[in-house]
Write a protein that binds this DNA or RNA. Structure first.
Lengths: 351, 351
DNA sequence: CGACTCCGGTGTAACGATGCACCGACCATA
DNA sequence: TATGGTCGGTGCATCGTTACACCGGAGTCG
């Protein structure tokens, strides 16, 4: 089965394997149009499909890209995986899935493994702040896209970052809450170690400053980095719950809470309800990411949408684009415009 | 980079490539222990990793399994993908991800493509009731696991089905609702076309019959099979919402609603709330699957858990297990025991 | 007319790993 | 001393594709 080789095609079409190969690889200028058509129809009739292994062995470049995510069990990464695979498919590429479980060692091992399997393009969703350890691989020709991460000064040359503009997104949300009339707004996050958390926090602060509001409550939580077999999602939600409980029982509780992501926001919602209040009335809650859950949750969550489909497509393009003459000396950053999605979890404060 | 070949190892260790290859493939009995150790340490020192493409070209068997799911954007499939990848990793296998988007044509195309790429093991999460179209491939040696599906009479020989015991799970839930005191219980589902929906419905009915309760309300919905770019999840939730709205506004509304899966249950919850009632008080709502959302939702959803991790591991084992002498003439079915998870969305009916 | 240049191809040596078919040395047996 | 059997390896053809090197014939130019 599936045993039709390029030789079978060549024989059936009365040409050499070289000609078939040339056609397959777009070097079509070297043959008569009629020859070309004859070969093409032979390929179709025989149902020939090139053998990827042989092709890779020869060229060293498999038609596969790697995707390293913390866990596809998390709907955010699941969505990325889905759209990235769709984008890859349009060019005949496949996606190899790797779950790092947020373990830096595993993450590194996956990348090494993929590289030594000959894979030349990887989308890496790293939990590591620094990507220095891959700069050697990039120098050796690996195409590396860091997803959900913006460029840093010490980024390896050649690295492409794909991310939503966290600062703008958080600003949008800050403005939204302010425009509803909120004046005491808290920001809830796990430890602000990662780049995008920092950016979200800063964007948020900027919006408040512009509105002449004093520095808001900020609750961050150390957050255990345990990978205990859960997706980490439940953990994020729990963090939101604990933080919000503390805030609401404090002396001067906020009328709105902006969580660093949707999972945390969901935890916040639970705390609000546990405190006997209604989300979207007594307390407004906002998230970030717009994962599927956000629309399904009750109340439907006001959040900031990341254009996942476009971001995934861009990530693939960056991997697949033809080699460019030395790219900008600095690492590239592809920033996408976030979109405010107002649903039911935010409203004007009760006066 | 990564340019170390088996020849480099052989030269450095002072043996032939055959000996290295023998060692690599477990034919260790053919050499002196000291030779073996020398080669092993050389491999380690040089950081040699066998080239998968070359190995596959020679053996025809890549160290890769294929996973075809409707969409990894759906947390249920995301969880499967995660655990399957973890299981595969333990044996050095990688997972190639394919999203069929519930399109039968795409599903078929993916399988054909994987097969002609030489892949010998596929986990298929088909939306098709019949799997006849793959029986030819199975006869040709493809290992095929159908996930979330129980054996059918016309299944191709050699097919392995992995699924939770839907009947038992639904029975468990039926008993739970009855034991709480519910007497009018509705079952909400999309069109009961698929096998597991039928089984869930039957298990549910059985529990009610045993309790001497008359045939409950059943609401099914045709359900558009559109793949409009959503994950289908939102659609499932919407279905639950519409169905529950109708039930609750009817003449003799149920005190409990059992939805065919968690997504639908979430839609039901929304309808209940929209009707001005509280889930877990006026109306009990139950789901099936225990996706991450179930625990995060508000109220936390009572549901039936599928032991995903074990099921994924079993699926991989079925693909990877050594060829057995002609397996049972009939297709195999691996049924897993579901577990009732009682949370906050179900309670005794208000009297 | 001889030297060039295109055109439309073809021949073939790799790519790296595998595993069957060998092979020489040594030992036991008859 | 001939025969045969292990042991501990090695030699090499092979998998399907690619792309560089080459080639014969026709046309062009001076």
């Amino acid at each position: 089965m599936a045993g039709i080789t390029i030789l079978d095609v060549a024989r059936a079409a009365g040409v050499s394997t070289s000609t078939v190969s040339n056609l397959l690889n777009g070097r079509t200028g070297r043959m008569l149009p009629e020859t070309r058509e004859r070969v093409e129809s032979t390929i179709r009739e025989l149902g020939y499909r090139p053998n990827r292994a042989a092709r890779q062995l020869r060229t060293g470049k498999p038609q596969v890209i790697g995707l390293v995510v913390p866990s596809v069990g998390n709907p955010y990464w699941g969505a990325l995986a889905r759209y990235l695979e769709a984008a890859a498919l349009t060019e005949g590429y496949h996606v190899l899935l790797c779950n790092s479980e947020r373990d830096p060692a595993r993450e590194r091992q996956y990348v090494d493994e993929l590289v030594s399997d000959g894979i030349r393009g990887i989308v890496l969703c790293s939990s590591l702040p620094s990507l220095e350890h891959v700069s050697g691989l990039i120098d050796d020709g690996l195409r590396l896209v860091a997803f959900d991460r913006t460029a840093q000064v010490d980024d390896p040359v050649g690295l492409v970052n794909v991310s939503v503009d966290n600062t703008v997104g958080a600003e949008l949300m800050g403005e939204h809450l302010v425009s509803l009339g909120h004046r005491r707004i808290a920001f809830v996050s796990g430890a602000i170690r990662s780049v995008n958390r920092t950016e979200r926090f800063e964007g948020f602060l900027r919006a408040l400053e512009r509105a002449g509001i004093a520095r808001p409550d900020v609750v961050t939580w150390p957050g255990s980095s345990s990978a205990d077999g859960t997706f980490g999602d439940v953990e994020a939600a729990e963090l939101g719950r604990v933080a919000a409980t503390e805030l609401l029982s404090g002396p001067n509780p906020p009328s709105a809470i902006f969580a660093v992501n949707d999972m945390t926001a969901i935890g916040v919602c639970r705390a609000v309800r546990d405190a006997g209040m209604e989300v979207g009335r007594e307390v407004s809650v906002a998230g970030f990411d717009d994962i599927v859950l956000a629309e399904l949750y009750s109340p439907r969550l006001t959040t900031v949408r990341q254009p996942m489909k476009e971001m995934a497509a861009a990530a693939f393009r960056a991997l697949h684009a033809p080699e460019q003459a030395q790219p900008t000396a600095q690492a590239t950053s592809l920033l996408f415009r976030p979109e405010l999605v107002v649903r039911d979890s935010t409203a004007a404060p009760v006066s």
